[in-house]
């Protein structure tokens, strides 16, 4: 009986069930707070035609960029994709489809998806290319755009600490999209820096309750810095 023990000990088990053509939501902002080992495992598995929902698409040789390199991504739903030469090449050649989504709308689409809300109205993007083809409506004299929620076959996230039941705590701004992503996967896999015994985490300090999390794996993170800026 596994009960509520969500811990898996190898990456093959962590990503078991991922198949060609599936949709994957990934936490992270830039290279901060990304599930490095789970991304590496997807590369290892070689599954193709994936749709990724992620704020960014990594850099050429790190983060989701490694899956571009391997031509495993068919479509990206992101808010900003500027840091990646491979991305540009595949986008311009038509190999890669891109759906640009405002950052706050992207976060809310994941949140809504996980919370059972199929769509929501936001003023973001009204009158811009983002609103084209979407329903709009006026509330109290302001215009809003109807945006649909996002869910996925898998959500891959990174947290700082997990207990064995999958309760999660994030660290600093590595939190970013991870809490919403965690709620929106049919299977949510958390790669974490440390796994502790049940009862060691203070219940009120838990950011993501274990109910959202299916699998937990302890990772080793490079934590590459995208832009090192120092005070003079």
């Amino acid at each position: 009986m596994a009960g509520f023990n969500k811990v898996v000990t190898n990456y093959a088990d962590a990503m078991n069930g991922l198949e060609d053509g599936m949709t994957v939501i990934s936490g992270g902002f830039g290279l901060c707070g990304i599930p490095e080992g789970l991304i590496a495992q997807i590369k290892e598995m070689g599954v193709k035609d994936l749709t990724f929902v992620s704020n960014n698409c990594g850099v050429d040789d790190f983060g989701l960029g490694v899956l571009l390199e391997n031509k495993q991504i068919k479509k990206m739903i992101s808010s900003y994709v500027g840091e990646n030469a491979l991305f540009e090449k595949q986008f311009l050649s038509g190999e890669l489809e891109v759906e640009l989504t405002p950052q706050g709308t992207l976060a809310e689409k994941m949140r809504a998806g996980g919370a059972g809300i199929p769509a929501f109205y936001t003023a973001t993007g009204y009158g811009t290319p983002v609103a084209e083809g979407k329903e709009t409506r006026e509330f109290n004299g302001r215009h809003y755009v109807l945006e649909e929620a996002i869910t996925a076959d898998f959500a891959i996230i990174r947290a700082w600490k997990a207990d064995k039941m999958g309760n999660l705590i994030y660290r600093d701004t590595a939190m970013n999209f991870n809490p919403m992503a965690a709620t929106a996967g049919k299977i949510t896999v958390a790669e974490v820096e440390e796994i502790v015994e049940v009862g060691e985490l203070e219940p009120t300090h838990i950011h993501t309750p274990g109910i959202y999390v299916n699998r937990v794996i302890k990772g080793n993170f490079e934590k590459r810095i995208e832009k090192l800026t120092l005070s003079r």
Binding site: F29, D172, M180, K223, E226
Partner: peptide, 23 residues
């Protein structure tokens, strides 16, 4: 590496800061 701003630059937090999800 876990402390960055929206420009993806390394930053610090001041006293009284709070950190939260993108939503």
């Amino acid at each position: 590496p876990d402390m960055i701003n929206a420009g993806k630059e390394t930053v610090t937090a001041v006293k009284g800061a709070s950190i939260f999800s993108s939503a």
